[in-house]
Design a protein around this nucleic acid. Structure first.
Lengths: 226, 226, 226, 226
DNA sequence: CATGAATGAGGATTCATTCAT
DNA sequence: AATGAATGAATCCTCATTCAT
């Protein structure tokens, strides 16, 4: 019996900037550095949320800290780098969460459906934990060729790939109709993105989120099942 | 038997700017002015496409024409106005196309399904005719509060409303399960947006567009039918 | 017995732009031209009043007419010229009014005092007739070297000269102390200007204007009498 | 016996911007910054003097320094702010000077008259020390609603109020006729303004300034005395 | 004469980034 | 390492004036 995390996300995510991986204790200087870094990160998240990534100026971010303008450049080279850094956290969480979502070969269509619901709930939880960043992601452009836009796109690619793999297994097992899995997954991700946008940015659907999510999964499952 | 356009889009769209309705012949001067207007419009479309609306500077647009900086302001007051103007064209086309898509009260689930496919194909055609603008729309940020973002959002609202009305009829007629129609329509629009993005921006799915669209409609229909 | 207008103002005023001095009947074309001229003049007066001379743009003036931008330059070369033209009217009125204010050699201090009051009342009436222009004059900068500023200054020079001449006569006749007449006149003009400003621009002192004016003349007369 | 400064000017003036009150020694950097500030202030004063406040461009000011365009905005937000800053210096001086001009309840008309002369001389001295700024003030428009115009007007209001209070006391003590004190003070301020204008801007009356001032006070006193 | 489209110089302001301290 | 003053390119916008029609 196969037993593994859903998917190896590290392949997809690539090298998220990792600062301070080592477990050695920090010197005072390092601690101070880590604190400053954290100040900048928190401030950036707030500013991106308020003004949107593109309109956010580095000086806006610094205004929320008590650091000098030049200090920013000791930690990051530009705006896109700090966004990458913020994103890395989300990626780490997704990786962990989906990794823990252990998957068995589904014994039945029902089990497959349950797994799909589990996945949805898991993602929902991750998004809740990273609400600010997810808002920034779902209300941002994709497709242009700035570093930022590629990052946002990358985020969706990861989600798409997760769905695609799951759909492939469903088709292999004969639970799902043999659709184009990429199309399937994009369709679901698109719907999901719209849903998250309405939920987090527009603050709609706040009544019974779980039920709504279940509806979505149900519709999708019914739409694609064998 | 009721027979009417699908939906009165004029209510949603508002008065698209109408220039040059009169049939009187233009003087040479007026013709030159109209040409300059067209130059600016074309240039703006290109620049928005290349750099994205937010990064596009008015001087970028003017660089594509051989006009002086001040000239822009003879035609538009700012960047948002020219975008509105471009959008008005698309809206006019959508209005016309959907208006011609006459709808009968569906006699059967099958007829309802056909109608859904018709709608999808019609929108597809419109989008093909306005490819550049649609690319700009699907690859732009929403959720911030600039004029631009409200326009983009408005575009999706229109599409969402069209789907929502159709879904309502389907539910009333007993062909569809009584889902939350707003959720349904957002879900489909989200998926569609993602699809259009992949198709127009990423240039994927170019093999058999009609078949892909049919797949989408099929999945959606199957997912929500009674 | 000497009998003459108070002063020959034409010497002071110089060549106010005089258009249409001849009495020959106007052709239709000339009439149309005169009308356009009048349109511009009225519009300019309003705009100068609202925005102040310096902030007034030529296009502001033209917006109040139904003339094209280029047309302005058929009548005036720039903003200062039209101001000169407006001023010429006021000058003409002052000249006329003061010219009619016939002056005898004052037989007594009392008569001299009456004459001073007459002068004040006369000026007051002129200012009332040209309220808008006077407002523009009293609420404008002076002392810089633009054409406009020299015009404003010229206006005060005229008034100052009128007072100075009268004061000289008063001193010659022994009714007034032998003060520096230029100082005297500037002092009075300065006070008057402030008074007019408060009256016309700030809309104070509207209760009993004549009484206030009489107060001013009284104080001044008492201050300088022998 | 009452003994106090003439008037509490702080009520009228408001909080003049106070920079660098602390006595700690400046670092080299702070010193350089203070020098730059001073460069800008001096340049602004010169430019305002030459071109007038309204025609002065920020780039004109910067041309007199060797600073970059953006540097201005490190010190001031716009043109009006630097004018306010310059004005604050004058206000501080007026406050100090008039504050030191201690006033006793006047025992006689003569004493009152002396006090008036003292006031005039004091103001004259202040104006001499701030010649450039005073020139800018007396040759500027008032009455429009820009920030600048309100500042200029405020300056005259202060002077007017000083005179008005003194006149009130004179009337209370029976030395002056019971005129409308506001009218009185405006009249004197108007005359004074005109005088200062001629003296500082037109460079007249430079022979015996003290005597001229004495004349003015004498005329005024004689004009209004009981 | 009249028009009004076009021009382009000129002014304000912002902001990422550098670098001397 | 940290600072924050200084920079200057980039952008938006206005407006007097010209000139082909």
């Amino acid at each position: 019996m196969e037993r593994s995390g859903l998917i190896n996300l590290n392949d997809l995510i690539g090298s998220a900037t990792d600062i301070n991986k080592s477990n050695e204790p920090m010197t005072r200087r390092e601690k101070s550095k880590a604190e400053k870094l954290q100040q900048i990160r928190s401030a950036a998240l707030l500013v991106f949320l308020e003004k949107g990534y593109h309109k956010a100026a580095i000086s806006d971010i610094l205004r929320y800290t008590n650091l000098a303008r030049g200090t920013f450049y000791l930690y990051y080279q530009d705006k896109s780098q700090i966004f990458d850094d913020l994103l890395a956290d989300l990626y780490k969480d997704i990786t962990l969460s989906l990794g823990q979502l252990e998957i068995e070969n589904q014994k039945s269509k029902k089990a497959f459906y349950e797994q799909l619901k589990n996945l949805a709930r898991t993602l929902l939880d991750v998004f809740r934990r990273h609400e600010k960043l997810v808002i920034i992601l779902v209300s941002s452009s994709i497709g242009r060729d700035s570093v930022f836009d590629r990052r946002v796109e990358g985020f969706y690619e990861i989600l798409t790939e997760v769905i695609r793999v799951l759909a492939s297994r469903g088709i292999e097992s004969g639970y799902l109709k043999p659709h184009n899995t990429l199309l399937l997954s994009r369709l679901l991700i698109g719907g999901l993105k719209e849903f998250i946008f309405q939920w987090l940015v527009k603050k709609r659907y706040t009544d019974d989120l779980e039920a709504e999510i279940e509806s979505i999964v149900f519709i999708f499952m019914k739409g694609v099942e064998q």
